[in-house]
Simulated scan of single mutants.
Amino acid sequence: MAQAPALPQPASATPRPAALSDALPIPPPPAPKTAAAWIVMDYATGQVLAGENYDQRHEPASITKVMTSYVIAAEMAAGKVHADDPVMMTEHAWREGGAGTEGSYSGFPVNQTAPLVEMEKGMVVQSGNDAAIALAEHVAGSEESFAALMNAYAARIGMKDSHFVNPHGLSAEGHYSTAHDLARLGQALIRDFPVAYSYNKIKEFTVGPITQPNRNVLLWRDPSVDGIKTGHTSNAGYCLMASAKRGDQRLITVVLGDTSENQRAVDSQALLNWGFRFFETHKLYDAGKAIAKQKVRKGAVDEVQLGLAQPLLVSMPRGKYSQLKPAMEVPKMLVAPIAKGQKIGMVKVTLDGKVVAQRPLVALEAVEQGGFFKRLWDEFWIWWDTV
């Protein structure tokens, strides 16, 4: 394995004397004692920093509405629906999710319309089940058809163990997800549709004479928190998907099946504080920039530049950046033709002997075959290298 180029010096890094704490292991995370499942995930890399039971199926309750938001944003991006569409609060939506039910509601009047973006805020901020149903009917015609869209987008996101049967999250057979999948969903919403994500930090929303607060109390307790969604049913318990950004680093936590509204907030806050205190995220290599060169035989040129199609980032314990060791796995000999983007090898980064990040190395440019005499001459050298 060949040594890769030295890693760049972090822009935020400043020389400091070694601290006694640098040699200490990271303390265990403040594991929620009463939750059924939980996870701490780095947003930029998707690395799981800590968690328990995070791949076990669990009812997601109203965190389901994050999936509903994602589908609406994706359908808007495709031009199929629009922010100013008049969305009808149908009698079905009102009866199944309105004020007369036991769940949360938005308060939009029955048999009247509201702009899609306003209806969505009623779903996101007030966790309105009625708004979720009305939006599903507007986008796909029915809850069942909308659920099919939810599952299709969930598969595209990479939610490997989730299945949705409604847009609001009330208990239903076959409606489940995992803490890990929900963290992936939060990551996808933030990355793909930041405007839709921004609705999650609105602290209160008014429909007619009714003003309701966002149920995510972390929005008041921690200024770095800007989402994402709470949930509660008798079967699911108290759930919270939270996200916070401090400096350039963003973390996502999911706590499922907790015992109270306050406990899910306390547990989520503790996990966020632990993650930010003991981990940091660095971009090691940019996409599309050469990080190595490799000799090419029988080509119009004698070497090709190698780089990454996607940036390489890593989440790691704080203070360990200088101990990262990059290395490349590349063939000893390359033979033209080589297509631009062709996978050539792999760059791996290790810490304490363990691989913490890796990406395929690709050719950043095409290399055409050389002329007859160039190919003949290189054929000799290929033979020479193998004898």
Rank of each mutant, 00 (worst) to 15 (best):
G122S: 09
G208C: 10
G103N: 10
M119E: 01
G307F: 10
R184C: 12
A13M: 08
L7S: 07
V254Q: 04
P30H: 10
L364K: 02
I39W: 01
V301L: 06
N166D: 15
T90F: 07
P15L: 15
N129P: 13
M150W: 11
G79D: 07
A140K: 00
G231N: 04
H175V: 01
D42E: 04
K80C: 09
A309N: 13
D248H: 13
R297E: 14
G103Y: 10
E137D: 04
K229V: 08
A83T: 12
H180C: 00
I338T: 04
E96P: 10
P28V: 14
A236M: 01
F373W: 15
M123E: 03
C239K: 01
K343E: 14
F276D: 08
A4C: 11
A179C: 05
L189C: 02
A188M: 08
G371I: 06
A23D: 15
E137L: 00
K325M: 06
K293H: 13
K354W: 07
G98F: 05
G345I: 09
L272S: 06
H58Y: 06
R184T: 09
E118G: 07
P115A: 13
A148C: 08
V207F: 05
V87H: 02
F373K: 09
P115D: 10
V356F: 10
L251W: 02
R191A: 12
R57W: 02
P28T: 15
V81I: 15
F108E: 06
Q305H: 13
T233G: 09
W384L: 14
G158E: 11
R264V: 07
S177A: 05
E365L: 11
I26M: 05
E91H: 14
H92Y: 14
G158D: 11
P311E: 11
V110Q: 01
A13Q: 10
A61R: 02
V367S: 08
K293M: 12
I63H: 09
A287F: 01
E52N: 04
A366R: 08
H92Q: 06
T178G: 02
G208P: 05
S127W: 06
I202P: 07
A366W: 06
H92N: 08
Q112H: 05
R215P: 10
N111T: 11
W384Y: 13
F276C: 06
P5T: 14
V356C: 09
